[in-house]
Every structure is written in structure tokens, then in C-alpha cells.
Design a protein around this nucleic acid. Structure first.
Lengths: 213, 213
DNA sequence: GTCTATACACGGATAGAC
DNA sequence: GTCTATCCGTGTATAGAC
């Protein structure tokens, strides 16, 4: 386990420490000590602490997105005429993120901190970054959802996808509002079922048209 | 405008600089220079940079929550028997946040950075903080929604509120996913209408019951 | 009670030797 | 590619003036 390229050792330590102590709570000195490499190696291989985090997140997010695309491909193959049930599309979009989190518990927190870091940076920096990570996946799903819901204007489909993403990240991040009562009640699996159920109902709502042509 | 107590000058500068440059991007030295006060004044009045942000956010969030409570009071007064339409409850919950943002454009970004900062801190710190800021409001709305949707288990109501909050913050923060196409299309007002419409449909979905007693 | 000046320890970053 | 030494900005703490 001690044998690995310097770059990989850094990425491994980043997974562990960013996940457990957060981004701000992890100093490069502690990280490089954990990795058994020199302090300056981070800057040589990644350029900055920030870009190291981006690289860390990209690894995981790319894996999640690959699973999404795979499921979408399977759905489109199973429905050659294009009428994929919206519920199936939502499952393909939402569940890979939770599956990943469940598969690799220590890396789960890394993903959780994504939105935090991104939102704490200026929008001019964040936006192109998200673009690079997500745009291809989202455009695939947008196209599929437009076909599945032909009554909706494209703008409305886009907006509903944004709402879906927001609800999903907040569910991924854990409880957003304070614990309403103790209410454990639902385990993770049930929570996902309910989430997708809720989103499917919202997505299937009839169009809300003002004065449109 | 230059006349104000030191504490107020600091809070004003915090609104401007946290809003425009973010939390991490604002040093206490820049902030105190903008405010025209001494560096140590922040520590004296607030204890730390972190607590200064908490104070800044609390000011705004408390105002938003007061508006929510006022609207909920009005709804409950208008429906003494307790059957408030869920759509009305969602409007009372969601719209004050956007109204505030629209009223005070430069402070809008301050609120946007809330979740960012909170999520970048350890959960043990974040959780009690959110508890103090939101729990009273959320419990009021949870109770009202439980009465309005008696078919749902309380746990399911709680979960749907969490989903709602997540969708709302992401909508408040701007586009979460990359700009799907250029798609301006919808202005802010329409986006809010669509958001509430979507959430109302999700909230009114029939219960999703597994094997329950 | 308030505010100022100053000191400290730590962070990320960089230059340059090897 | 790797490492050492160093720089400068940062949040924080404190001693003491008003």
C-alpha cells in the first residue's frame, strides 16, 4: 500500500483528510505528512490546494456520472421509440450519487463538501468548473426528459432539472434544515425512494403556462 | 453615513464584502479598513471572523423568518379549522426568501453563501447553529403541513420539507447545474412560480408506503 | 467599556539547489 | 521530479491607552 506514485499518494491522503476534516480544516502540511511526500509536491503536481480538491472531486464525480450515463444508455436501448418513463430517468439521475456514497463511506463526505467549496468561491470561477464536470451528463438527461415530457417547454424542463439537482444535493449532504424532531424513522434507502417519488410527482406536474404563444 | 457605532460599521462592511468577495475571500484586514475601524474591533465585538459571519447571516435570516411566520399567522387566522391549502403554505415558506433577495440586491449574495460556509464546517458545529436559526420556523410549518396533509406520516412530511428547503436554497443560489443551453427564457418571478408549482405537486403526491403498520 | 497597537503562530505559495 | 529554505498574508490573542 505504501507503493504508489507521489501523485496517487497525495490523492489518497486528500480523500481521507478532506473527507474527515474538511477543506479548510486540512493543511497542506498535514496532508503531505499523511501522504509521506514533500510539501512542495502538491504544488508541483496540482498547482494549488484548491486545484487538488478539484482533482479529488473530479475523480469521484466522473465515476458517478459514468454510472448515470450507463443507466441512461440502457434505458434508451430498452425504449427505442424514446418514451422513457420519467421515473426511470430520475432514478438513473439520482441513484448513482447515493450508490457511490454507500459504496465508499469514507469518501462520502468528500462529495458532500463539493457544493460548499464551490459556493464559497466567486461565481465566475465556479461556473466554468461545474460546466466542465456536469454539462455533458445534464444535456443528455435534458434531451431525454424533453422527449419524455413533450408538453413542457424546454425552459421548464431545464428549470425542473435544476430543482431536482438542488433537492438531490441537499439530500446527499444530509439534513439541511434542523432535525425536525428526532424523527429517525426512515433509513437511507427509504429516503431515496421518497425523494425520487417526490421529484417524479413534481416533474410530472402539468405545465405552468403564463401568457405564451 | 460615516456616523455609526463601530459594531454597525463592521456589520455593514461585512454585508458588502462577504457578499461580493465571499467569506474566504474577505480578510479581516480588508474588512476593518473598509469599515474604518481597528482590526481588533472585530475580535472584541464578535469574538472571531466566523462569529461575525454568523451574526451577519442571522440578521438577514431572522428577517426572512419573521416574514414567513407573519404569513403563516395570517393563513392560520384565515383558516381557523386548519385546512390551509398546501400551495399557500409553500408560498409562505418559499417567497419571503426571494422577496428579501430582491429588496436588497447587494445583500443577496450574503445569504447565498450561507450554505457554503455552513457545509464547509464540521457537522457538529453546523447543526446546532442551524437549529437555533431555523428550528422554530420549521416546526411551525411542519405542524401546519401535517394538518393540511393528514394522509402523510409525520416522517414523510419532514422529509418533504427537507427536500423543499434544498430545492429552494439551490434556486436561491442561482443555477446549480451548468447553464443548460443559454436558456434565459424565464425571469426571476416566473422561476419562483414554477418552483412553487413543482414543489406543490411533489408535496401533494400520494404517500409512498412500504410495509407499515 | 472601547478601542489601538503590536505580537504571534500558522497557512499557502515560491525560488532555486539537487 | 524532488526537496529545503524562505516569504508574505492571515486569523487570533493580548497588553495597555483612553
Amino acid at each position: 500500500m505504501a507503493e504508489a506514485t507521489t501523485r496517487e499518494r497525495i490523492l489518497g491522503a486528500a480523500d481521507r483528510l478532506f473527507g474527515s476534516h474538511g477543506f479548510r480544516g486540512t493543511s497542506l502540511r498535514a496532508l503531505t505528512r499523511e501522504a509521506g511526500v514533500n510539501l512542495a509536491a502538491v504544488h508541483y503536481h496540482f498547482g494549488s490546494k484548491h486545484e487538488l480538491l478539484v482533482a479529488t472531486l473530479s475523480r469521484h464525480i466522473d465515476a458517478i456520472n459514468a454510472a448515470r450515463i450507463a443507466q441512461l444508455d440502457a434505458l434508451e436501448a430498452a425504449h427505442p421509440n424514446g418514451d422513457i418513463p420519467p421515473l426511470d430517468l430520475l432514478n438513473a439521475l439520482v441513484r448513482p450519487a447515493f450508490a457511490f456514497r454507500h459504496a465508499s463511506p469514507e469518501n462520502a463526505e468528500v462529495v458532500q463538501r463539493l457544493s460548499a467549496l464551490l459556493h464559497s468561491e466567486p461565481l465566475e470561477i465556479v461556473h466554468p468548473l461545474m460546466e466542465g464536470l456536469f454539462s455533458r451528463v445534464m444535456q443528455r438527461f435534458a434531451a431525454a426528459l424533453e422527449r419524455a415530457l413533450p408538453d413542457l417547454e424546454p425552459e421548464e424542463v431545464y428549470l425542473r432539472i435544476q430543482i431536482t439537482i438542488g433537492a438531490m444535493v441537499s439530500a446527499l449532504a444530509g439534513r439541511h434544515p434542523p432535525d425536525l424532531a428526532d424523527a429517525p424513522g426512515l433509513d437511507e434507502e427509504e429516503r431515496i425512494d421518497h425523494l425520487v417519488h417526490f421529484l417524479a410527482a413534481g416533474f410530472s406536474a402539468k405545465p405552468l403556462n403564463g401568457a405564451d404563444s
